[in-house]
Nucleic acid binder design. Structure first.
Lengths: 214, 214
DNA sequence: TAGATTGTTAATCGATTAACAATC
DNA sequence: TAGATTGTTAATCGATTAACAATC
């Protein structure tokens, strides 16, 4: 298998989409697919799909195409979805609750082991089969449970403060919904940002400036 | 001002980040900034920032830099954040609730005017100062209230079904959290996807394949 | 074997960066 | 005027697409 270290982000970000779509095909009972068919259904070029997959290995068969279930497994493997990284979630408000309950962390390579909040009205309540803890318990919890990923569903300031502590405790991986710019402050951290308002503003721009028609 | 029709998506997707950061600076009382300072704080090149902004006009002053509050206003204007597009939300589950209450739609160019769900346990409850309606009321509501944007916080199948109806009623703009591939089925629709599980899987990959250190 | 489709190299296209003249 | 920083053109870099030989 080719060296993984230098696969571009553009490629990596397409993998989950391939994975989702192939799973969908598998569920529908499709067993075999060519890069051309895939390209039509995903709105990409067949060339790009083959290039992308060949960053990781040759998963197809010449003259035949790809076996759907096999390719699914390969991509799950590339994405490392079976690690079950131990994960803690901060913020049990509406967003935290949605992320905690709505996501199938397990299926996506993670295992949610703790939820924290600083509001007494939320502490003690249930969320995703866990009891919401007070943030003050965080340090002890981490020493004992050794989480490796933190999810931030709280405001910018709280995220900034928390990151310092978590970083100090050795946590380097973050799924960040806050407006705090983690990646700039901690260059060796792995940060995946989800900026919902950015997405909404982009939509606003696109609605206001629709593509010029011919 | 240069033609807007052909500004690349890469540029557009950076605008909300500029906007957020400039607002942050404004709040901190910073009045003036150069592209070089900005580039350091955002982790981009000064050249790129200037190129990006100059797709829309010359907002700086040679020898001086940019006036923070003015640039903020300009970007808000480029993004068209004052339109207040009439928006309806589908799905009052955890995710819909988070999106409806957590987002300041108003501030990001939208106005939430209706929330729909098909579960009797949710219909009639309050969400973001609105009463959750049954999906069966959707058609009448749309005829009367003329929304232009739909937000999908529901499962793939429900989204697929709903899109057909909404499209039939003339709605062409979608903020899509579902796994339904709207953009492929309706090529003339403007679709902004937020795939939370894709983001999580990307994080999983990145944790498992950290950048090679020197 | 003939037909199909991959894996891979080469060509193209677009986005980012560098450089510098314009100008505040 | 001298210094600074923009706006903009030109050079570079990387990502996408096209082409085709390998092979099932």
């Amino acid at each position: 298998m080719p060296r993984r270290g230098n696969v571009s982000m553009s490629v990596i970000r397409r993998l989950p989409r391939y994975y989702r779509f192939l799973n969908h095909l598998k569920d529908k009972g499709v067993t075999r697919i060519s890069s051309t068919e895939l390209s039509v259904k995903l709105g990409l070029t067949a060339s790009q799909i083959r290039q992308d997959l060949n960053c990781f290995g040759g998963f197809g068969q010449q003259g035949y195409g790809y076996i759907v279930s096999q390719l699914c497994d390969e991509i799950a493997n590339i994405l490392s979805l079976s690690n079950g990284y131990r994960t803690i979630l901060f913020g049990a408000g509406n967003l935290g609750r949605a992320i905690g309950t709505h996501m199938s962390f397990r299926q996506e390579g993670f295992q949610l082991i703790g939820v924290f909040d600083n509001s007494p009205s939320r502490v003690g309540k249930e969320l995703a089969n866990l009891i919401v803890r007070d943030v003050s318990e965080m340090e002890e919890f981490c020493r004992k449970e050794k989480p490796v990923v933190a999810v931030f569903c709280l405001p910018r300031e709280a995220a900034a403060e928390l990151t310092e502590k978590l970083y100090g405790m050795g946590i380097r991986n973050f799924w960040n919904f806050s407006h705090f710019d983690l990646a700039m402050e901690y260059p060796d951290a792995i940060v995946e940002n989800v900026h919902l308002s950015d997405s909404l503003m982009t939509l606003c721009y696109r609605i206001s400036n629709p593509p010029v028609e011919k």
